[in-house]
Design a protein around this nucleic acid. Structure first.
Lengths: 239, 239
DNA sequence: CCAATAGTGTCTGTTAGACAATATACA
DNA sequence: TGTATATTGTCTAACAGACACTATTGG
């Protein structure tokens, strides 16, 4: 047998930072660690994830999808690899490495996402700046921070926020999500022009009625791939 | 003991895609797999890397640095996490995952980089489009492709090529590297203006002499961090 | 003077940003 | 009519791209 196989193997996990948008905040789904003495960080809130099941998981992404499905019931949202974190100290059980993903859940899926009746306690938490109020298990605060910064960075030059919207939405609602993620207001006309000339959206032959002028409804033309802009919205953090 | 520790652990490696620039091509450092029957892909060219040594490597990045040092002798170039690849099939020895990094080696370091007298045969190969001519071991062709695409994508809106240059260089040389990576020519004036107004470079009080008008020499102002541009050079692939 | 490469002048087109003006609903 | 939100008009500044022109060296 090859010498290499005798190396001690790190513990290997996959974690998925799951974002969704509430009316006026970006939110992240966290799960509570089991309350048992032989588990690390008992009772702490954590990013959903866990060990790779080499029997069930064909590859890393499939494993991430499985975790996502287990926590939210959601099938195919936007899923992107975020990075990996591995060192000797992050898990008291030994040298461990996690492959981190981040997922965007549409407002529609979120309403269906049935977070409670599952094995583990789970809850949506508002993201402020680049963290949540709770102390997280492991190095999950750092991973969450990286996820938020990646998302924020990409908002400046991609259409990622589209994946957080319901199936139909107004331009103002779309702008609002951008503002929530970026943490600052955007100029209305510039935003509309940018979005409309990009061909990212198509009009729905319907308007959203209210106590004021009705707003045109739009939907994503492509629910699979984001659009990349050649120019960033300036002033925002660039990843 | 916690149930989770009984999961079979994937094999875990770290690979480093090491780029450097020749006069008219982007090059990548590959190593030859050992020629022994109990090793997978004997004799094939591969991206340098290997198993994590949980005793020596404090974290993933340290492991990547170690691999880099072992192959090139280079200490601190530009090193960025590229992504991870893991599935049941990529290594015949079992479910395995690799944490891939990519590194940029300056032309100066490359001249010093003493690639041959090491344990393993190593060689620089020209990158064409997003691959090399040789068939690579494992899924390394895919990883290399991702690395090239990432680099190419970032060239459109960052100063990454700066890390491939020697310590002093002319504007034309700098532009040439951009062109080599992007695979197309760039407009001279636009390039110079973009670079010079960005504050990325500073003049060296010296000129490069030749059989024609001498050229101003420049050097990077910041050898650690790349500069991000708000506008991409258009027409190029966006990551 | 010629060849070769370095470097500039100037015009155009695109688009983000600022900000004011107008439009359309309900009460 | 008044209030609220949607949508448009218009001007400016920044900057990439195109392209022609000038500058400076050695031979």
């Amino acid at each position: 047998m090859s010498r290499s196989l005798t190396f001690p193997r790190p513990l290997t996990t996959v974690d998925v930072v799951i974002f969704s948008a509430a009316t006026d905040a970006l939110e992240v789904l966290l799960v509570r660690r089991p309350n048992s003495a032989d588990e690390p960080y008992p009772n702490r809130w954590a990013i959903p994830g866990g060990f790779i099941d080499t029997a069930k998981d064909a590859d890393l992404e499939a494993c991430a999808m499985r975790k996502l499905k287990e926590k939210t019931g959601v099938q195919a949202p936007y899923l992107e690899q975020l990075g990996s974190w591995g060192n000797a100290k992050r898990d008291p059980r030994g040298w461990s490495a996690t492959h981190a993903y981040f997922a965007l859940i549409s407002a529609d899926d979120r309403r269906q996402a049935d977070v409670h009746p599952r094995s583990q306690e789970a809850e949506w938490f508002a993201v402020e700046e680049d963290r949540v109020k709770e102390r997280l298990a492991f190095d999950h605060a750092e991973i969450l921070k990286a996820a938020v910064q990646r998302l924020r960075g990409k908002v400046a030059y991609t259409s990622l926020p589209g994946f957080l919207m319901p199936s139909e939405f107004t331009m103002s609602e779309f702008q609002k999500i951008h503002e929530v993620i970026l943490g600052r207001t955007l100029e209305k006309k510039a935003f509309r022009t940018r979005v409309l000339t990009s061909g990212l959206l198509e009009e729905v032959p319907r308007k959203k009625e209210g106590a004021n002028r009705p707003a045109q409804l739009y939907r994503l033309k492509n629910k699979k791939r984001p659009v990349y802009f050649a120019r960033a919205i300036t002033g925002s953090a660039i990843e």
